[in-house]
Amino acid sequence: MTLRLRAEVSLAEAEDGGGVLLDERSGEYWQLNPSGLTTLKLRLAGADEATIAETLLAGAQDGTGDVAQAVADIRELVAQLADAGLVVGG
């Protein structure tokens, strides 16, 4: 099942490369840092965790981070998005 934003949730990209999520149902709004936005967009497009992890690590450009840690971080972010009621599926 593909991850998707709830119908009442809007996503806007910020100038710093991050994103803002607005939940019109609860009135809450949230901020994603640039790697968070990359993770969400790729996840919404159906990319798997390994692909997203490689993308995040490639963006680091200095060899910092490792795939296992990146995958764990991706899972943590998706869980936070689900707990906040911003996404369904996945």
């Binding site: 803002v20 609860s26 009135g27 809450e28 709004y29 949230w30 901020q31 994603l32 840092n33 640039p34 790697s35 968070g36 990359t38 993770t39 995040l56 690590l57 963006g59 680091a60 910092t64 981070g65 840690q69 990146a70 971080d73 991706i74 972010l77 936070q80 998005l81 906040a84």
Partner: peptide
């Protein structure tokens, strides 16, 4: 490497 993060900014009426 930058860990992906989600931060609640607030809420509105």
């Amino acid at each position: 490497y930058s860990k992906p993060t989600l931060l609640k900014l607030g809420s509105f009426e």
